[in-house]
Protein backbone atom coordinates (compact mmCIF):
# COMPACT_ATOMS: atom_id res chain seq x y z
CA UNK A 1 0.00 0.00 0.00
CA UNK A 2 2.80 2.39 1.00
CA UNK A 3 4.73 1.45 -2.10
CA UNK A 4 1.69 2.07 -4.34
CA UNK A 5 1.20 5.49 -2.77
CA UNK A 6 4.87 6.42 -3.25
CA UNK A 7 4.90 5.22 -6.86
CA UNK A 8 1.84 7.41 -7.43
CA UNK A 9 3.63 10.38 -5.89
CA UNK A 10 6.74 9.64 -7.96
CA UNK A 11 4.68 9.83 -11.13
CA UNK A 12 2.71 12.83 -9.90
CA UNK A 13 5.85 14.88 -9.19
CA UNK A 14 7.14 14.14 -12.67
CA UNK A 15 3.84 15.08 -14.31
CA UNK A 16 3.71 18.32 -12.34
CA UNK A 17 7.28 19.08 -13.41
CA UNK A 18 6.09 18.91 -17.03
CA UNK A 19 3.74 21.83 -16.46
CA UNK A 20 6.16 23.96 -14.45
CA UNK A 21 7.27 27.25 -15.95
CA UNK A 22 9.69 28.36 -13.19
CA UNK A 23 13.18 26.93 -12.86
CA UNK A 24 13.39 26.72 -9.05
CA UNK A 25 9.98 25.08 -8.92
CA UNK A 26 11.20 22.54 -11.46
CA UNK A 27 14.27 21.82 -9.34
CA UNK A 28 11.99 21.35 -6.35
CA UNK A 29 9.79 18.86 -8.23
CA UNK A 30 12.90 16.96 -9.27
CA UNK A 31 14.02 16.91 -5.65
CA UNK A 32 10.64 15.55 -4.52
CA UNK A 33 10.69 12.99 -7.34
CA UNK A 34 14.09 11.79 -6.10
CA UNK A 35 12.88 11.79 -2.51
CA UNK A 36 9.97 9.50 -3.42
CA UNK A 37 12.43 7.23 -5.24
CA UNK A 38 14.74 7.12 -2.22
CA UNK A 39 11.89 6.31 0.19
CA UNK A 40 10.63 3.65 -2.25
CA UNK A 41 14.07 2.04 -2.28
CA UNK A 42 14.10 2.09 1.52
CA UNK A 43 10.62 0.53 1.74
CA UNK A 44 11.23 -2.18 -0.86
CA UNK A 45 14.71 -2.82 0.55
CA UNK A 46 13.24 -3.28 4.03
CA UNK A 47 10.55 -5.59 2.65
CA UNK A 48 13.15 -7.75 0.89
CA UNK A 49 15.75 -7.47 3.66
CA UNK A 50 18.19 -6.14 1.08
CA UNK A 51 20.91 -4.05 2.77
CA UNK A 52 22.32 -2.89 -0.58
CA UNK A 53 18.98 -1.40 -1.54
CA UNK A 54 18.73 0.35 1.82
CA UNK A 55 22.15 1.94 1.26
CA UNK A 56 21.04 2.92 -2.26
CA UNK A 57 17.90 4.50 -0.83
CA UNK A 58 19.90 6.60 1.63
CA UNK A 59 22.38 7.58 -1.13
CA UNK A 60 19.47 8.54 -3.41
CA UNK A 61 17.99 10.84 -0.80
CA UNK A 62 21.36 12.41 0.06
CA UNK A 63 22.67 12.80 -3.49
CA UNK A 64 19.61 13.14 -5.70
CA UNK A 65 17.03 14.68 -3.40
CA UNK A 66 19.37 17.09 -1.57
CA UNK A 67 22.83 17.34 -3.16
CA UNK A 68 22.04 17.69 -6.88
CA UNK A 69 19.06 20.10 -6.49
CA UNK A 70 21.19 22.29 -4.22
CA UNK A 71 24.04 22.24 -6.73
CA UNK A 72 21.72 22.99 -9.64
CA UNK A 73 20.26 25.97 -7.82
CA UNK A 74 23.76 27.17 -6.96
CA UNK A 75 24.88 26.85 -10.61
CA UNK A 76 21.81 28.63 -11.91
CA UNK A 77 22.47 31.53 -9.53
CA UNK A 78 26.17 31.58 -10.36
CA UNK A 79 25.55 31.73 -14.11
CA UNK A 80 22.41 33.87 -13.95
CA UNK A 81 20.04 31.56 -15.76
CA UNK A 82 16.71 32.73 -17.01
CA UNK A 83 14.24 31.42 -14.46
CA UNK A 84 11.12 31.75 -16.59
CA UNK A 85 11.11 28.47 -18.53
CA UNK A 86 7.98 28.22 -20.61
CA UNK A 87 7.41 24.68 -22.02
CA UNK A 88 7.12 24.57 -25.81
CA UNK A 89 4.20 22.12 -25.59
CA UNK A 90 1.11 24.11 -24.64
CA UNK A 91 -0.79 23.07 -21.50
CA UNK A 92 -3.93 21.94 -23.33
CA UNK A 93 -1.88 19.66 -25.61
CA UNK A 94 0.14 18.34 -22.66
CA UNK A 95 -3.10 17.43 -20.86
CA UNK A 96 -3.94 15.11 -23.76
CA UNK A 97 -0.39 13.93 -24.44
CA UNK A 98 0.56 12.83 -20.91
CA UNK A 99 -2.39 10.46 -20.33
CA UNK A 100 -1.84 9.13 -23.87
CA UNK A 101 1.77 8.30 -22.94
CA UNK A 102 0.63 6.61 -19.75
CA UNK A 103 -1.99 4.49 -21.51
CA UNK A 104 0.43 3.64 -24.31
CA UNK A 105 3.19 2.53 -21.92
CA UNK A 106 0.81 0.37 -19.89
CA UNK A 107 -0.25 -1.26 -23.17
CA UNK A 108 3.41 -1.57 -24.27
CA UNK A 109 4.49 -3.11 -20.98
CA UNK A 110 1.56 -5.51 -20.81
CA UNK A 111 3.45 -8.58 -22.13
CA UNK A 112 6.38 -7.85 -19.80
CA UNK A 113 4.29 -7.51 -16.67
CA UNK A 114 3.27 -11.17 -16.93
CA UNK A 115 6.92 -12.16 -16.74
CA UNK A 116 7.94 -10.11 -13.73
CA UNK A 117 7.09 -11.36 -10.29
CA UNK A 118 6.04 -9.00 -7.53
CA UNK A 119 5.74 -5.36 -8.50
CA UNK A 120 4.70 -5.99 -12.11
CA UNK A 121 2.70 -2.81 -12.73
CA UNK A 122 5.54 -0.66 -11.48
CA UNK A 123 7.52 -1.58 -14.57
CA UNK A 124 4.88 0.18 -16.65
CA UNK A 125 5.16 3.22 -14.39
CA UNK A 126 8.96 3.20 -14.85
CA UNK A 127 8.64 3.07 -18.62
CA UNK A 128 6.07 5.86 -18.64
CA UNK A 129 8.37 7.94 -16.40
CA UNK A 130 11.12 7.40 -18.94
CA UNK A 131 8.91 8.72 -21.75
CA UNK A 132 7.70 11.62 -19.63
CA UNK A 133 11.33 12.56 -18.84
CA UNK A 134 12.07 12.51 -22.55
CA UNK A 135 9.09 14.81 -23.05
CA UNK A 136 10.49 17.13 -20.38
CA UNK A 137 13.76 17.28 -22.30
CA UNK A 138 12.00 17.94 -25.58
CA UNK A 139 9.48 20.52 -24.45
CA UNK A 140 12.07 23.04 -23.23
CA UNK A 141 14.52 25.09 -25.25
CA UNK A 142 16.57 26.11 -22.21
CA UNK A 143 19.46 23.97 -21.07
CA UNK A 144 18.62 23.72 -17.36
CA UNK A 145 15.24 21.95 -17.81
CA UNK A 146 16.88 19.63 -20.33
CA UNK A 147 19.38 18.63 -17.62
CA UNK A 148 16.55 18.03 -15.18
CA UNK A 149 14.89 15.88 -17.86
CA UNK A 150 18.11 13.87 -18.14
CA UNK A 151 18.29 13.48 -14.35
CA UNK A 152 14.62 12.44 -14.22
CA UNK A 153 15.39 9.85 -16.86
CA UNK A 154 18.04 8.43 -14.52
CA UNK A 155 15.37 8.31 -11.79
CA UNK A 156 13.00 6.42 -14.10
CA UNK A 157 15.72 3.88 -14.89
CA UNK A 158 16.49 3.58 -11.21
CA UNK A 159 12.83 2.87 -10.49
CA UNK A 160 12.87 0.21 -13.19
CA UNK A 161 15.97 -1.30 -11.58
CA UNK A 162 14.27 -1.42 -8.19
CA UNK A 163 10.91 -2.74 -9.37
CA UNK A 164 11.74 -5.04 -12.28
CA UNK A 165 14.76 -6.73 -10.73
CA UNK A 166 14.23 -6.25 -7.00
CA UNK A 167 17.34 -4.11 -7.03
CA UNK A 168 20.44 -3.99 -9.17
CA UNK A 169 23.78 -5.16 -7.76
CA UNK A 170 25.29 -2.62 -5.37
CA UNK A 171 28.35 -2.12 -7.56
CA UNK A 172 26.21 -1.03 -10.50
CA UNK A 173 24.14 1.35 -8.41
CA UNK A 174 27.26 2.98 -6.97
CA UNK A 175 28.70 3.24 -10.47
CA UNK A 176 25.55 5.00 -11.65
CA UNK A 177 25.87 7.48 -8.78
CA UNK A 178 29.50 8.09 -9.70
CA UNK A 179 28.54 8.73 -13.31
CA UNK A 180 25.84 11.12 -12.17
CA UNK A 181 28.41 13.13 -10.24
CA UNK A 182 30.68 13.12 -13.27
CA UNK A 183 27.73 14.40 -15.32
CA UNK A 184 27.34 17.29 -12.91
CA UNK A 185 31.05 18.15 -13.27
CA UNK A 186 30.74 18.16 -17.06
CA UNK A 187 27.52 20.18 -16.94
CA UNK A 188 29.27 22.72 -14.70
CA UNK A 189 32.07 23.04 -17.27
CA UNK A 190 29.55 23.47 -20.07
CA UNK A 191 27.71 26.13 -18.10
CA UNK A 192 30.80 28.31 -18.07
CA UNK A 193 29.95 29.50 -21.55
CA UNK A 194 26.20 29.25 -21.29
CA UNK A 195 25.70 32.02 -18.76
CA UNK A 196 22.94 34.51 -19.56
CA UNK A 197 22.47 33.27 -23.12
CA UNK A 198 20.03 30.52 -22.27
Amino acid sequence: MGVDFLIGLFLATLITALFTSRLYRLIMWYSLNSLMLGILALLIGQELGDTAMLITGVATILIKAIGIPYLLKYLSQKFHFVRQIQPEVKVHYAIILIPAILVFTFYLAEPITHMIHGNANYVAVSISSLFLSLLLMMEHKNVAPKIIGFLSMENALFLLGITATDGMPMLVELGIFFDLLMAIVVINLLFHKEEVKS
Binding site: M168, P169, L171, V172, G175, I176, F178, D179, M182, A183, V186
Partner: peptide, 15 residues
Protein backbone atom coordinates in the same frame (compact mmCIF):
# COMPACT_ATOMS: atom_id res chain seq x y z
CA UNK B 1 29.58 -7.53 -16.35
CA UNK B 2 26.76 -5.65 -18.07
CA UNK B 3 26.59 -3.04 -15.34
CA UNK B 4 30.32 -2.28 -15.43
CA UNK B 5 30.19 -2.19 -19.21
CA UNK B 6 27.54 0.49 -19.00
CA UNK B 7 29.39 2.48 -16.33
CA UNK B 8 32.54 2.60 -18.48
CA UNK B 9 30.55 3.67 -21.51
CA UNK B 10 28.76 6.40 -19.59
CA UNK B 11 32.06 7.68 -18.18
CA UNK B 12 33.48 7.88 -21.70
CA UNK B 13 30.35 9.58 -23.04
CA UNK B 14 30.45 12.27 -20.40
CA UNK B 15 34.17 12.90 -20.76
Amino acid sequence: HMGLYWIGLELATLS
